[in-house]
Nucleic acid binder design. Structure first.
Lengths: 156, 156
DNA sequence: AAACCTTTCACCCGAAAGTATGAATTGACC
DNA sequence: GGTCAATTCATACTTTCGGGTGAAAGGTTT
């Protein structure tokens, strides 16, 4: 969390440095105002989208009674039972679903706004809880146990 | 193929060397006959089983009209169409099925009596034909396209 | 407050997976 | 005999996975 702030700072510093750099090394001083504004607008809109998504992501889970598996609406009731029986947390279940969709750990990390290491931790715990060694086996296992949302891949 | 013969030779040489070694270094000369026979019996029965399995494996495919996808009975007729449409060979399909069952490349190699490198080659070609990057995606893809034998994991 | 769980993340290391390239063999087809 | 695709395998290299350990932050429970 503290690191995130540091990253923000570094990103801002880099932006400022970049602006100064182009100011002194190129001949765009005449259209500097528009250019600056454009750069800054792009940067901050990107940052805003990112932060907004992340914030929304954080509140999606805190808004639904934290971690007591009673009123969570992410998964159907029967799935809930299997999950809690195996001691699989909500976050781990999310990771499991994404694994089953064929995503790499890095992709999952990007999608859930997590570090790669975190995804690894989750999947590692997941595997021991599912009693499997590989993610491919985890997919099999999860399908057997009905832990995955029906993707309905059974068409012709 | 030539390598296999060389390996056989090496294995036999090692066996002989081992027998000679225990003959000169231990005091089991008295029960040598039974011991020798036991070792040899174990070794050759193991080798026999292995060779037999391998031979059976080889003839399983040559016995069914080589590679024309007309009378092959490994997969249902509808699957055949999808496979040939994607240019997936029979061997590749075998590998694909084992991948979908959650096996590692090494396990697949052992099961099909192939080298690890060969399995990698097959899976690599498979991935490009399925237009995927990872084996987990290949599983997804194969299920979507109905390329896998029904494992019926849809029970409660 | 203390014990506990969940979630997050870092670092290291070894194993597995995947890519690229080249090559030998075999059977089919012409 | 020559061509072609399929199969097999090697070698080398990069990326991804997975295990193990430790730790920090936030929430729950007692």
């Amino acid at each position: 969390m503290k690191r995130t702030i540091v990253y923000y700072g570094i990103a801002l510093a880099l932006l400022l440095g970049f602006l100064k750099y182009i100011e002194y090394h190129y001949i765009i001083k005449d259209l500097s105002m528009e250019f600056y504004l454009g750069i800054v607008a792009l940067f901050f809109s990107g940052l805003g989208v990112w932060a907004g998504l992340r914030w929304a992501n954080k509140h999606e889970k805190s808004a639904k009674s934290a971690n007591s598996p009673t009123t969570t609406s992410t998964a159907p009731p029967d799935v809930e039972a299997s999950l809690s029986k195996l001691g699989i947390s909500k976050r781990e279940h999310e990771v499991l679903c994404l694994i089953a969709e064929g995503h790499s750990n890095q992709e999952i990390a990007d999608q859930l706004f997590l570090s790669l290491n975190t995804v690894k931790s989750h999947s590692s715990n997941l595997f021991s809880k599912l009693d499997v060694k590989r993610r491919t086996q985890a997919i099999q296992r999860a399908k057997e146990l009905g832990l995955l949302p029906e993707t309905d891949a059974t068409f012709g």
